[in-house]
Amino acid sequence: MDPALADGLSGPWVLVWLTVMVVLDGFIPPVPSEIALVAAGSLAVEGRMSAVVLVLLGTLGSWLSDIGVYLLFRHRMTGFLDRTGWGRQTHRTVRRVVERFGASSTYGAIIGVRFLAGGRLAASATAGVGEVPMRRFAGAAAIGGFLWSLWHVALGYVTGRATGLPFWTSAVIGTGVGVAVGLTVAAVVAVRHRRAAERAELHHPEAIPPENGPETP
């Protein structure tokens, strides 16, 4: 790697940028914080970064954004969001993820759903709406953020260590593996959610609103 590029990629500003990306990703899922963490994990193989520091910063950024989303929805402070394109996109993302995987404010969901696309936002939002106690949510979000950050940093680190390829190549491979795993898990969860909904409709058809009924605002 070119020395000038290596020095730039290992500077302290990169860690700040990475943390900001993770925070933004909690509010705006298209922000590619997962890819950034995988790439940073690949750089850690070359000694340019500390894998431990990367995991800690990823955990901190994830936790801060989770708390922010939780508070917005817990205190019903989302009205102003619909005035902006970002806010409308946020609400659409939450609805889309909840419709596909189900709405749950259990601690297992708070920890696990974040590994699905848009899951961090949906889990924090539904926990806020469901009025999960702040202290318990913060604890579950911290555990989930740590596991999420560890997974992505480890993907880059292990791939870089196993292949010995340049960091950007290892990052691409690690990201591909992560996407494949995520898609597989998402498919399994979506199928299970659909089957559960079908069983509920079969046993309690009166609980299913009519197809042409009035829409809930």
Results as ranks from 00 to 15, higher is better:
residue 94 V to F: 03
residue 120 R to C: 01
residue 187 A to P: 02
residue 93 T to H: 10
residue 105 S to C: 09
residue 149 S to C: 10
residue 117 A to D: 07
residue 174 G to W: 05
residue 145 G to F: 03
residue 177 V to I: 15
residue 139 G to R: 13
residue 115 F to N: 06
residue 190 A to L: 00
residue 181 V to D: 02
residue 91 H to C: 00
residue 142 A to P: 03
residue 163 T to W: 05
residue 170 S to P: 09
residue 170 S to R: 04
residue 133 P to Y: 10
residue 187 A to T: 14
residue 171 A to M: 03
residue 130 G to W: 02
residue 167 F to W: 15
residue 165 L to Y: 06
residue 136 R to H: 15
residue 187 A to C: 01
residue 135 R to D: 06
residue 98 V to Q: 11
residue 168 W to S: 14
residue 165 L to A: 15
residue 178 G to H: 06
residue 135 R to I: 13
residue 157 Y to K: 05
residue 107 Y to V: 02
residue 119 G to F: 06
residue 165 L to C: 09
residue 104 S to E: 10
residue 104 S to P: 02
residue 122 A to Y: 06
residue 177 V to Q: 04
residue 148 W to M: 02
residue 124 S to G: 10
residue 131 E to L: 07
residue 87 G to R: 02
residue 96 R to W: 11
residue 155 L to V: 04
residue 100 R to A: 11
residue 122 A to L: 04
residue 134 M to V: 12
residue 147 L to Q: 05
residue 127 A to T: 07
residue 141 A to V: 08
residue 173 I to E: 14
residue 110 I to T: 12
residue 150 L to M: 15
residue 188 V to I: 15
residue 110 I to W: 00
residue 164 G to Q: 11
residue 93 T to E: 11
residue 90 T to S: 03
residue 176 G to T: 02
residue 185 V to I: 14
residue 161 R to Q: 14
residue 176 G to D: 06
residue 162 A to S: 14
residue 149 S to V: 01
residue 183 L to R: 11
residue 83 R to P: 03
residue 105 S to Y: 11
residue 154 A to Y: 05
residue 147 L to M: 14
residue 113 V to Q: 13
residue 176 G to Q: 08
residue 107 Y to A: 11
residue 153 V to G: 11
residue 99 E to C: 03
residue 159 T to H: 07
residue 176 G to L: 11
residue 95 R to Y: 07
residue 85 G to H: 11
residue 165 L to N: 03
residue 147 L to T: 00
residue 138 A to G: 02
residue 83 R to D: 06
residue 162 A to Y: 02
residue 154 A to T: 15
residue 95 R to L: 12
residue 97 V to M: 08
residue 124 S to Y: 05
residue 117 A to W: 12
residue 149 S to P: 04
residue 87 G to M: 07
residue 98 V to C: 14
residue 154 A to S: 14
residue 143 I to L: 15
residue 113 V to C: 08
